[in-house]
Each structure stands twice: as C-alpha cells, then as structure tokens.
C-alpha cells in the first residue's frame, strides 16, 4: 500500500489469476479438505481480487499503471484454455471442467506480465523479483509432486503435472536473464 508505483505490473495477469482462483476454488462450497486449505483459498481469492481492485480503482495506483504497454488480450488465453478444458478433463461436470480450465489458465497467466516486462525494458526491482518468486514458488510444486509420487498411493495427476511443467518452462527464459543480471550485478533488462 505504501509503494503506489505499479509501473511494470500487468493488470491482465492479475485479472487472469483472479479468474484462476475463482474457477478453481468452487469446491469450497462442496468439499472440506482442511482448515489450512480453506484459509489459503480465501487468502488467494481475497489477495488476487484486491490487487485487481487496487489497480483499477485506487487513484494513486491507477495513475502509475502502464496501460499503453499492457495490451495483451485476455481472450487469447481464456478461450483456448476453456476449449482445452472442455476437450481434456477427468470428468464432464461443471466443477471439474472449471477446475481443469483454471489449471490450464494458470500455466499461461504470466504471459501478459512477461510481454509487459519485455516491452517496457526497464524493470523495477519490484516486478523483477515478483516474477522470479512467483516462478520459484511454482517450481517447488514440481518437487512436491515428486515427493508425493513416492510417498503416497499412485494417483494420476497428468493434467496438473503437464500444466505445471509448462508453466515452469515459461519462466525459464525469464530466470536466465534474472540470474544473469544478479550475477553480473547489472540492472535486469529483457531482450526485445
């Protein structure tokens, strides 16, 4: 709230994340997994929707939002993911197709942010570190899946495994430039 400069933060990516969580956590109304699980779902939902609210409605934040460069269109990601979820899913029910859609969408939701970083060239520490930690966080899921594969009954997780792998790959190129700039102690820039 103190840092009102959101230059370089993609509203499109934030809106896609809000959509990801809204469509994935429909099971909050039907299943109870654990208190931790429910609390984290509420945190993800409230934080993603409040970021969108801040970027759209808050006077100071909105002023610094780089609208002209953040031109990626939602439908180019949302529609293919919806079609893919309608074709490839485990069960053809509303909740299951929405869950599958959210998994596919999450894999590509970072794209508008990466495009914006590439266009503006000049990357704030804030946005550079944000993307780095988001990618690092997702890659920890892969370690967790390997751990669970060996310690739990053999579940089929193809949809989440492949989508999570694709998501981590999308960050790989960014990681390369991020780590290089860190190693050489220079400001992070992405090639055009």
């Amino acid at each position: 709230r103190k840092n009102t400069n959101k230059r370089g933060v993609s509203l499109k990516t934030q809106e896609l994340y809000a959509l990801v969580f809204a469509t994935r956590y429909l099971d909050m109304f039907t299943d109870f997994i654990s208190l931790y699980n429910t609390v984290m779902k509420l945190i993800f939902l409230s934080s993603s929707f409040s970021i969108v609210w801040y970027m759209r409605r808050h006077k100071l934040v909105r002023r610094s939002y780089d609208k002209d460069h953040d031109t990626f269109r939602h439908q180019f990601l949302v529609l293919p993911c919806l079609i893919l979820a309608l074709l490839i899913h485990e069960q053809f029910t509303f909740k299951e197709v929405m869950w599958t859609f959210s998994i596919y969408l999450e894999a590509v939701a970072i794209l508008p942010q990466l495009v914006l970083l590439q266009r503006t060239r000049n990357i704030d520490n804030l946005t550079g570190q944000y993307v780095f930690f988001l990618g690092a966080y997702r890659s920890l899921y892969i370690l967790n899946w390997i751990y669970r594969y060996f310690t739990e009954p053999h579940y089929v997780h193809w949809i989440t495994w492949i989508s999570g792998f694709v998501q981590t790959l999308l960050y790989a190129d960014f990681f390369y430039y991020y780590l290089n700039s860190w190693k050489n102690n220079v400001k992070l820039t992405l090639p055009a």
Partner: peptide, 10 residues
Amino acid sequence: GCLPAPKDEL
C-alpha cells in the same frame, strides 16, 4: 493401480 487425483492442492 492408479487412483483419481484428490483435489487437495491450492
């Protein structure tokens, strides 16, 4: 054998 995946991940 393989079981259907539980939806316990965030």
